[in-house]
Design a protein around this nucleic acid. Structure first.
Lengths: 237, 237
DNA sequence: ACCGTAGAGATTGTTCAACAATCCTGCAAG
DNA sequence: CTTGCAGGATTGTTGAACAATCTCTACGGT
């Protein structure tokens, strides 16, 4: 058969299949439950400070208490829940210190990733383009929550360009925690709209290979974003 | 009583007691089990690749299977175990890619921390001094494992100077994973000894406030360390 | 009216035993 | 040599039970 003597490229679909299978297999009950809760938390349905009762949730989600607790653990490790001994789990109420801590980490990682880029294949930037366009479309419809989501994905894809497993993982958690902060403030438009254009400009710098300048821009970008978020946070209801 | 009007320093023992109490209280059975296993793994008793059977361990550690599984989860999150669905947990077998990934993250975080330091209180460097001296003492007795441990602590304390909760957490996991790599190679002396002097020199730069230069030195330091480890890794048994 | 305390009720922490689902091994058939 | 199929072993999940701890309320003393 051709597949036995074909070029290595023929095996690419095998990897895709394997990935799909893994994605299908990996879902234990606990992880499925964690997915549901993660969605509710990052979407802001569960406000910071609210407690997640074991008894109520196990009925609602149709799983055993042990499995539910396992899901709690997963989310706790992601920073989306905090666990207080003998008291239960709560959606965390992040502080100003958390905000600064998160942005510090963000600046370090994202800027370093961008600065370290080299000889990027234009195809790799495709997801970033899609995110920018998604944000622009959502902005036309004044759907600022979707704008925020698209911006988040832009940054996750940006970091993904480095191909570092651990940096990707950390960034995922980092952005999830950041979302927690977005939900305690009341002006989503002011927080997301300005960065659509900046994301596009960043993308253009990447497309033309100006990585060092992109990193500097990104640093300033993140400092501005931090300042705006901090101000909104202090003026929250 | 004097303690009510004394200087803030008087309350230091209170914090220590509170920390101890918290450490005692917080330690659920699962965390105690995790401590035991963590020690075994980081000490190299459990070699990379070995499986941790639930049935055997629950008898050995005298806990229920659920508690054991929870301990597994804790260690999995720290990167000290990997979980394969329906197959169990294993001590991870890190690859060359992991080595490079870990060092990349290490360089970014540690160098940024050092570069961002300012107006350090000399007392804050005390733990670092203790670590350097511990490494030097252990080197005299040719206890290279202890040297490695002291070096690790030096770096953890170094990162701790930044006061960032998240960076501390990430570094803890990072160094734990790094230890996993040390155990698959056979020349502990060559990997740890050269860095005792470099740690001391780094400490002196910090003591004299030369943070920018310290950061540059640290970067070169880590690149050398990575290269040495990589070489030893390729030549492993 | 204020404060500390005791106790009831509710929630979480931990264990156990059982069953379901999946993986690994070895063997037989094509 | 590959494929398919038992069998045994291990993990995944559940439900119930009990212990430990927290929260809230009511009581009594000052």
């Amino acid at each position: 058969m051709a597949s036995e003597i074909g070029p290595p490229a023929d095996q690419s679909w095998l990897r895709a299949v394997a990935d799909d299978a893994a994605h299908f297999d990996r879902s234990s009950s606990a992880e499925r439950v964690a997915d549901v809760l993660r969605r509710r938390i990052t979407d802001g349905v569960l406000r910071p400070g609210t407690q997640l009762s074991e008894e109520s949730l196990k009925d609602a989600l149709q799983v055993s208490r042990n499995t539910l607790r396992e899901a709690f653990r997963l989310l706790t490790h992601e920073g989306l829940l905090v666990h207080r001994m003998h008291r239960g789990v709560f959606v965390p109420d992040l502080t100003e210190d958390d905000l600064l801590d998160l942005y510090r980490l963000r600046r370090v990682l994202e800027c370093d990733v961008v600065r370290g880029l080299a000889d990027l294949d234009p195809a790799q930037l495709e997801p970033l383009r899609a995110d920018v366009e998604a944000a622009e479309s959502a902005a036309v419809e004044e759907d600022w929550i979707s704008v925020g989501t698209a911006n988040m994905r832009f940054h996750r894809h940006l970091v993904g360009l480095a191909g570092s497993t651990r940096i990707n993982e950390i960034t995922g958690r980092l952005l999830a925690e950041l979302r927690l902060l977005f939900h305690v403030i009341a002006t989503p438009r002011a927080l997301h709209e300005p960065y659509i254009a900046r994301n596009r400009s960043l993308l253009e710098l990447l497309e033309t290979g100006q990585y060092a300048r992109a990193a500097d821009d990104l640093n300033a970008y993140l400092l501005d974003s931090q300042a705006a978020l901090l101000e909104a946070f202090r003026a929250r209801a």
